[in-house]
Amino acid sequence: MTYKLILNGKTLKGETTTEAVDAATAEKVFKQYANDNGVDGEWTYDDATKAFTVTE
């Protein structure tokens, strides 16, 4: 299944996707991606759209 990450960081904005077996796996991938790019903020998840959002 495809999951999307929407980044609303102070220095990094954009979107990326990942293929994962479930939302928990996608969340781990996205949190590592955000951490690697220096984005740390409030996380939300919308199951209807399979989209995670992180806002700094």
Rank of each mutant, 00 (worst) to 15 (best):
V54K: 00
E56G: 06
F30W: 01
Y33L: 06
E56I: 10
F52H: 01
T11E: 11
Y33E: 02
A51H: 06
M1D: 14
D40T: 14
G41F: 03
A26T: 00
T49A: 12
W43N: 00
W43K: 00
M1T: 14
E15V: 13
E15K: 05
A48I: 12
T44G: 06
Y33H: 04
K28T: 09
L7H: 03
D46A: 04
V54M: 05
K50P: 02
F52P: 00
I6Y: 13
K10A: 12
N37D: 02
G14N: 08
Y3P: 02
G38F: 07
V39I: 15
D36T: 08
K4F: 10
K4Y: 13
F30Q: 00
F30H: 00
K10D: 08
K50M: 10
L5V: 04
L12F: 15
T11R: 09
K31D: 01
Y33N: 02
M1N: 14
T25G: 08
D36R: 08
V29G: 04
D36Y: 07
K4L: 11
Q32G: 05
V39S: 03
T55K: 06
N35C: 12
D40V: 15
G14T: 14
D22K: 03
G38S: 06
A23I: 11
Q32D: 09
D36V: 09
D22L: 04
E42N: 09
A20P: 01
A51L: 14
E27W: 15
A34T: 06
N37V: 15
V21W: 12
K28F: 08
A20F: 04
G38P: 01
N37H: 15
D36M: 11
I6R: 04
L5A: 02
A26K: 00
T11Y: 14
M1I: 14
D22W: 03
A48W: 08
G14Y: 14
G38I: 04
A51K: 09
Q32L: 09
N8V: 13
A24Q: 12
Y33C: 04
T17L: 08
M1R: 12
K31W: 07
E42V: 14
Y33F: 12
G41S: 01
Y33T: 03
T2Y: 07
A24V: 10
K50E: 03
Y33V: 05
W43I: 03
E42H: 12
K13H: 10
N8D: 09
K10M: 13
E15H: 08
E15P: 04
V39A: 03
A26N: 00
A34R: 01
T53K: 05
E27N: 05
W43T: 01
F52Y: 05
G14C: 14
F52K: 00
G14V: 14
N35T: 14
I6P: 01
T49Q: 12
E19S: 11
K28Q: 11
N35I: 15
E19W: 15
K31P: 01
A48M: 12
V54I: 11
W43A: 00
T44C: 05
Y3E: 02
V29Y: 15
G38V: 04
L12D: 05
K13P: 05
T49F: 07
V21K: 13
T55A: 05
D22H: 04
K28E: 09
F30D: 00
E19R: 12
Y3I: 02
T11M: 10
A26S: 02
D36F: 08
A51Y: 07
K4W: 10
N37R: 15
T16A: 10
V54C: 10
